[in-house]
Design a protein around this nucleic acid. Structure first.
Lengths: 366, 366
DNA sequence: CATGAGAGTGGAACCGGTTCCAAAAAGGTG
DNA sequence: CACCTTTTTGGAACCGGTTCCACTCTCATG
């Protein structure tokens, strides 16, 4: 009583038609007589026929797979990004092959190798740094790669990022404009373009105002390093009256250290600005002033980009820069944004969208 | 000058051997003469040969795909779970096909249909509720399904959950033991076993102590509903002196409302306990007393379960219940846990692991 | 009524691998 | 050196679909 596998051929046989005809029944826009179609569909339904994507992909040469390489899921920005990427891709008819890989992993090469074996039609890389060799290989195979939230400076790859430079620049100018003079920057990883661009935005804004940064240190987006750096900042040299931090996760840790270990008031004694507008940072007890990266928009752009590259791999590498928004919480002193007019004025002055956070926003990202 | 596709046959031809021999070179433990192997490998390397997993899967009947259905990525528990699940699976030699689907989506059926088309060898469902029909279908096809962090009561499916009942029960007993008498429960979704079990743990602990709950309401794990329910709680009837909340995301919102809108001190006026031990809840300004679900362990158990089911689909459905840990922060009044002895005593009394949170823990989940 | 167009159909080759099987080559033994 | 065993090898079938092509059958047109 062994169960026979239900294949197209089996269906065809039982419906008394050729394999080719049966195939046409499941192909959009192929010409089949209505009566035949009905007969085949009935048999298929009765037997619970499941067409094999594997066989289909093999013969058509299209897999509809997109490889997504991610990491850092403890950062809400990446978690939200992955969610939007995934359902956007699946709505567009693609399947997500998910891989986790950190930047420094030696397995990186192997990981991508695997993706190629599975014949993905495109790759969205949100964490891995694509080495020259791998990028070349993908190019040879005609497989487009889109960098997400990072840019490969040496290689000319398509990428989706947000306006990191402008965001950090505007945030810094906000601090300067509100009267802070001893400003420090606890930066994100200086090997990633996000960290680099934000640090540059900070430095430039300081220089333009004729101010010398109290310090610029690399905390590599790691909370415990941010904690260390904060202690160092408070111990050595002149204490800052404001700190721009590389992302929200670190910024909240910084706030905890300032208040907990040094009894400082925020923003009374020190102002703090973060980056990302992570869900936690929106909570009442932090209400962090920060720069928002438009997660949803970025993810959708990335999908659009990879889609268009899959359809036409020859097109030149395009970079998409999504606009950032300055989100005003209550961690910067000297702010007065009670009227719509003053908000608009600030926005014009800083050259960036400004939004005042309404406390206890529902705040579910999408 | 058209580039010929590099296939096994091509390699074989160039190396002057048969396709079968070439295939054996890439098969572990097949017998090939060393000289021949070398020759084939050289040709393959020179041409940058990429074996097609598609073709391989089709002919061997093994895909090494595992479908993972998730959602709610704004909840750090799910984000961390997905991370661990993914890299554990990929270490075990499986590929993750990721799908996002909410519980009430009508597309659910379609989603799973798709997974079956792709011939996944197993499914880990962290969000979707598997309908009877679909479970039956998977069973017919011999495809194992493991529920993650939820249980399907009617269906006898394998599942990995944490000890929700015990966790909530212990948390409630902690509140009672520290002298609270007017205790409310803002529960998680009462259609999900997580929400149900926790609510039951709460009710039972109250009943055992002869206490009447001030209120039990369903906030469906949604922050804005938790906010609403908190307001209702404060407006109507007797005000609680403690609230057990269905998860950390909601608990933090509850704290914000209590402090922000009613000027209440936590834990002075009201004690709060959450559930999950989310990264944000560990931050200094919340330092929430909560119940930890062992993310890493749960994810690894899920992978182990699906692996063993793939190898032997006939085995009976097993349920894994991972132990919960009571993590003591500073949102419950009347606690005195300065000595190791007192911690151990409490642990024994409540029948659950107890841990006192050290402030500013590095706190990256794994 | 022959003619041509167009719809509907099935046979067979193909996608890129694996694997069964029988044949060829190599190695060991008396 | 004949004979048996073991290792290596290639041909061919197969996995489950798609698609090219040639063929049959209608039906409208000149």
């Amino acid at each position: 009583m062994k169960k026979k596998k239900i294949t197209l051929g089996e269906i065809a046989r039982l419906a008394g038609v050729g394999k080719a005809t049966a195939s046409r029944v499941f192909t959009e826009g192929a010409s089949v007589a209505p009566a035949t179609r009905e007969r085949v569909l009935t048999v298929a339904r009765d037997l619970g026929y499941q067409p094999s994507q594997l066989a289909k992909s093999l013969s058509t040469g299209r897999t509809h797979y997109v490889g997504v390489i991610f990491a850092y899921m403890d950062n809400p920005f990446y978690a939200a990004s992955l969610e939007v990427l995934t359902y956007t891709l699946q709505d567009a008819g693609y399947q997500v092959l998910l891989l986790m890989a950190w930047n420094d992993t030696p397995e990186e090469e192997k990981i991508i190798q695997k993706l190629l074996d599975y014949r993905v039609e495109g790759i969205i890389a949100g964490s891995a740094s694509i080495s020259n060799a791998i990028a070349q290989r993908c190019a040879d195979l005609g497989i487009p790669v889109v960098m997400y939230n990072r840019d490969q400076l040496r290689l000319n790859l398509p990428a989706v990022v947000s306006a990191n430079y402008q965001g950090a620049h505007a945030a810094t100018r906000l601090l300067i404009r509100t009267g802070h003079t001893r400003i420090a920057h606890i930066a994100g990883w200086q090997q990633a373009t996000t960290g680099i661009e934000r640090a540059k935005g900070f430095s430039d804004a300081m220089a333009e105002a004729g101010l010398e940064p109290v310090a610029i240190t690399d905390a590599r987006f790691l909370r415990h390093l941010a904690v260390e750096e904060t202690h160092r900042l408070m111990r050595d040299g002149p204490r800052p009256d404001a700190i721009l931090v590389g992302n929200d996760n670190m910024a909240m840790a910084v706030m905890d250290v300032l208040a907990g270990a040094y009894g400082l008031d925020i923003p009374g004694d020190v102002s703090v600005i973060g980056y990302d507008d992570a869900a936690c940072a929106q909570l009442g007890r932090y209400d962090l002033t920060t720069v928002r990266q438009p997660v949803g928009q970025m993810a959708r752009e990335a999908v659009g980009l990879i889609e268009s590259l899959i359809l036409d791999p020859a097109q030149p590498a395009r970079k998409v820069v999504a606009p950032a928004t300055l989100v005003v919480g209550s961690t910067v002193r000297g702010m007065d944004l009670t009227t719509t007019a003053s908000i608009e004025a600030l926005s014009r002055e800083l050259g960036i969208d400004v939004e005042v956070r309404t406390p206890l926003a529902p705040g579910l990202s999408a």
